[in-house]
Amino acid sequence: MLAFQILIDGFAISALYALGAMGFTLIFGVSGVLNLSHGAIMVAAAVAAWAAASVLNTDSYTGALIGIFVALIMSFATYFVVVQPIQKSRRIPNEEKEIFVLTGTLLWGIMIQELIAYFFTNNAKTVLPIIEGVVNIMGVRTPQNEIFTAVVCCVVIGLLWLLVNRTRTGKVVLAASMNPRGVTLLGHELNNVYIVVWAIYGVLAGLAGVLLGMFLGVSSYSVGPLTASAFSIVVLGGLGSVSGSLIAAIVVGYLETLTAYLINPAYRTIPALLLLVVVMYIRPQGLLGRR
């Protein structure tokens, strides 16, 4: 019974982590940007979905769509307001641009967090679940929405794989992550590739935020921990490696769930962070990293 419980809960959490980290790693892989406003964008999506449902009284599907739309807008805002001006600036030396982007997105994330706290307070909000009720899976009373979350995550990850590996746009994105110069030589505008990637990122982060809001609930306090968890999953999997992040998400998700059930819920995040430290020592490029 406990084993099944861990299996089911761990799967749902892992799928959600994977979805959250996927966009984050994609952006790094393609444009070398570590977007530290990631958590803020996820929370903004969840809070927007909550606000749509409880203030504007929309149904849960419309609320979720509004949440994803808000994340898409925020994603473009992050790119055009914060990242692009830094990358194009002539006054910032090239070798320092990464640090500037890191700082810029971090501050941007804090601004979003403070705005959310100002307008919606720092108390937690939960997004109206799309499916209510529970089902019994092998003696484990599982909320149907948890299954829904896991299924949506898996489907979206599958779609992303198809997009990257089977479509023309996806192949250009993949190529850009391997050799940006080569892509421009083939006549593709790198700027357009970035816009596509930030669009994909916005949808992924928004979806992850809304699903997280349904599953566990979020508050403005979640911004830091969400960015940190995406960051550690991506570093564990290998910066920029999508399949590495997927494996890392499953490892972290199950490690946390096992700790919470078998040791103590209070120590939930500790073993995963210790693992991260160990991996940093033994294999600094991460599980599937190229560099």
Binding site: A260, Y261, A266
Partner: peptide
């Protein structure tokens, strides 16, 4: 049961 105020997933606790 005492839990950390940072807890987000209460499933194990209720369990």
């Amino acid at each position: 049961i005492r839990f950390s105020p940072d807890t987000t997933d209460f499933t194990p606790i209720f369990n």
